[in-house]
Design a protein around this nucleic acid. Structure first.
Lengths: 136, 136
DNA sequence: ACTTATTCTATAGAGTTAATAGAGTTTGTG
DNA sequence: CACAAACTCTATTAACTCTATAGAATAAGT
């Protein structure tokens, strides 16, 4: 299950996809109003998306946020990694967040790791097909 | 990412699959020793597996646990649902733990729900292929 | 200078996770 | 029939995460 944070992020990105033309920014307040997301919480979410180079911002009066990528190039796997972490069910099977298990004796022969890796790869392919464009 | 609880459960089930013959029970203490699982925590896990009718137990002296199913008939999706809940990333896309979104206006036309349902179905198929038998 | 926006850091309450503890119940055995 | 050894059940705890709020700092257009 994804967090409210990630669900808010998806909604915010959809709103940006629909309203931020090139060189046109959208205010946090607008996203908050139309997508019913607590404004202060949304600010944190947008900052994380900015750190991940999915969006960028313009400061000051008449500032706001805009997408850095085409909506077809932002997929569910990207967003999941930002807000939820690894797609793999166990860290040892992750490509982007790899960590060995504490108690693992022979990782290269671990059947659980191999299996979880397969699930990960298939879930990843599913997730990649879902883009902000496809959600609009 | 799965919890330690679920990982312990998988290990315990593997141990039971290898050591519990028909009408032969395995002591919690043995599983705890060989799989390095805190005994008291393991007891809770086994009780949950019993409630889910994956294992059964025999009380008293010379008691213990044994599998109720063939190891080929216990898959990762079953275990995931017991310990982590829905496989779907959002409850409205879940079959076994369905719950509507609080703020949803038109669920039947929600593109996010449709997409998450697809991811769920594909992940479910991946998970079903992983059984306790295949992990031994 | 003023207004209005983003940026950054802190905090708080609720809930979850991982683990421990202990009393209660069941059953085989001497 | 008492004892030992196992499962059963409930409670508690510390650490952590999630959700949300708050406020001061910074930036930029008018």
């Amino acid at each position: 299950m994804i967090s409210k944070k990630m669900k808010y992020a998806i909604k915010a990105l959809c709103y940006l996809g629909e309203h931020s033309q090139s060189q046109m920014v959208v205010k946090t307040q607008d996203i908050s109003n139309y997508k019913k997301i607590p404004k202060k919480f949304l600010e944190q979410i947008l900052l994380e998306l900015k750190k991940a180079k999915i969006v960028n911002s313009k400061q000051g009066n008449e500032g706001g946020y805009y997408l850095l990528k085409n909506t077809k190039d932002i997929n569910l796997a990207d967003i999941y990694r930002i807000f939820e972490g690894p797609i793999a069910l166990i860290a040892c099977a992750s490509e982007n967040f790899y960590q060995p298990c504490e108690d693992c004796i022979d990782e290269s022969n671990c059947k659980l790791k191999k299996s979880i890796k397969t699930v990960r790869n298939e879930t990843l392919e599913s997730m990649k097909k879902i883009t902000i464009f496809s959600l609009q």
